[in-house]
Amino acid sequence: MMKTAERTLPSDNVLGYAELTNDLLFHRIPHSKRRYYVERPLAIGREHALEFKARYGTDVGAICRSRGISVNLNERQGTIGQIRFRAQIELSAKERAITLYKSSMEELRQCAGVLLPGRSFTLKEITDIHLAHELFHDLEFTELGYTNKRLDDISSLSLGPLRIRASVTKTSEIAAHAFSRYLLDLPCLPNLLDYAYMIHSGTLTAAEFWRQTEVWSGELENS
């Protein structure tokens, strides 16, 4: 845990675990393996971020251009139903394109201080965080293989002797968050901003969030 002016920032493990709980198959992950699905992707993201930074630097916009990834700024809100899209990447043999949702970027810039007192972000920094996140997915597509496919599968459904196995897709997001954090020297995993936005928009209170981080921390320690 990292001390800020008012609070201790959640650790990478806790924020990674928070992301893992959003996985559709989270309840199918054996308790004894939860830590594995947090720590392994964090290590993968961190390792590649440090390697990448040493080789190419931290100008993510330039790196994207040099890799032939087009970056589009979408003026639309990026909200579909109850889901808010921040950024997405479309990957194919022909084309790789990142779409950033402009209003999402602006929102996050405004609300970052909610959970990171005294820390402000410029729009470029927020944009870079998202570009770095999507850049990691591009790396997965072109070189590394998807993080979720590199980790053990879980049994997603058991019907008598029939076992259906699936990967834990959120581990790819955890690794991308870690890549973004360590490439850009962020104080914590950037999905903290998601919760800052929820607090800012009133769907969550700061007290509820901090209480939940303790729950996550406890669950992770006991796994």
């Binding site: 109850q82 808010r84 921040r86 950024a87 479309e90 997915h137 928009s201 969550l204």
Partner: peptide, 18 residues
């Protein structure tokens, strides 16, 4: 059709744990 793989940084508007 387009043979594309999509990955998105998306979040629910309300926290899942609630």
């Amino acid at each position: 059709k387009d043979g594309k793989v999509r990955r998105a940084w998306a979040m629910p508007l309300k926290p899942e744990f609630q």
